[in-house]
């Protein structure tokens, strides 16, 4: 990976002056992924926090060509962009080499945009799809998605008197993408001192064909924690193995980070108000349930990665 010093000499591709929350993780994801590209970059974004906060007319924070179409179709839209690029390149109307990136939140990726994403990946377009996964529909006020954590409080599956937040565990979208047998699938998080996300984005850009990155992105608004702790929560997600870091390159699964000491899930959870209700003694069994599921998934992943 290029050093941060070298990266800092590059042109800034996302300006300040956007309207994301103070401490927002989504804009960090976008900046880091774009910095990892050694070629000009063209971006498509799904409707969502990142898109809405960065493109309030007449102010755009994007210093790269950027297109927003709708919520569920970032992957299909970008596949059209890449197809036009191929056609125009064949005709000699475009000469530049370009990297193509789509950004979508977990709502736009796990839920409403899953079909469009699956289609684009299966068709083999040369593009990178990045899911900035903050585990809920933050843009519209913290509604649950299929990425939302078990027992998390959201506004459409709230923690109430008889129901402690979300019923279900999040689905394994990274695994679903790996099942497409595309050349590169990665799971990353912001905050790692070794710049895991930048490394993975660099690797993805170096590979021809469809690539998918699922990036865990702490959200201070929806998770309710102190704004300066965005990266710290990312690291805790990796250290608790709630969000393991790995990649699948040409079908070969490999862990890219193993915590020296696996921390209990509560180290991650209890820094956030969305899990506050789980501190009650009567909800202790839910914590146990979550810990067991995290352990089970982690062991399964280790097996897949040949780590045991």
């Amino acid at each position: 990976m290029a050093t941060l010093k070298d990266l800092s000499k590059k042109k800034e591709l996302l300006t300040g002056g956007h309207r994301a929350c103070a401490g927002c993780g989504a804009t960090i994801v976008a900046r880091q992924v774009m910095l990892a590209s050694d070629k000009p970059i063209v971006v498509v974004a799904a409707t969502g926090c990142l898109e809405v906060t960065t493109t309030i007319f007449p102010y755009s924070a994007w210093n790269v060509p950027f297109l927003h179409n709708a919520f569920e179709n970032a992957a299909a839209t970008l596949s059209g962009v890449t197809a036009a690029y191929e056609a125009l390149k064949k005709k000699g109307k475009i000469k530049d080499d370009i990297n193509f990136v789509a950004f979508g939140g977990d709502g736009g990726t796990y839920d409403i945009g899953l079909q469009s994403l699956s289609g684009a990946m299966e068709r083999g377009h040369n593009l990178l799809y990045v899911c900035y996964n903050n585990q809920a529909y933050m843009n519209t006020g913290v509604q649950r998605s299929s990425a939302t954590a078990r027992a998390a409080h959201t506004t459409t599956e709230p923690a109430g008197k008889v129901k402690p937040g979300k019923d279900r565990f999040p689905k394994d979208l990274t695994g679903i993408m790996a099942a497409h047998n595309i050349p590169y699938v990665g799971q990353s998080v912001i905050g790692m001192v070794n710049n895991d996300l930048i490394k993975k984005a660099e690797k993805a850009f170096s590979i021809n064909g469809p690539k998918f990155l699922n990036v865990f992105q702490p959200c201070r608004l929806g998770w309710a924690y102190k704004p300066e702790e965005t990266l710290e929560l990312g690291r805790l997600a990796a250290d608790t193995c709630i969000w393991p870091l790995y990649e699948v390159v040409d079908g070969v699964w490999k862990l890219t980070y193993k915590p020296r000491e696996k921390k209990p899930v509560t180290d991650f959870m209890f820094k956030q108000e969305r899990f506050r209700h789980l501190k009650k003694p009567e909800n202790k069994h839910i914590i146990d349930e979550i810990q067991n599921e995290v352990d089970r998934r982690w062991e399964e992943l280790r097996k897949r990665c040949g780590d045991m």
Partner: peptide, 15 residues
Amino acid sequence: HSAMSACVGASAAGG
């Protein structure tokens, strides 16, 4: 839905 979405992407791209 993806057909029209891809058409928008391709047409916006300049095709």
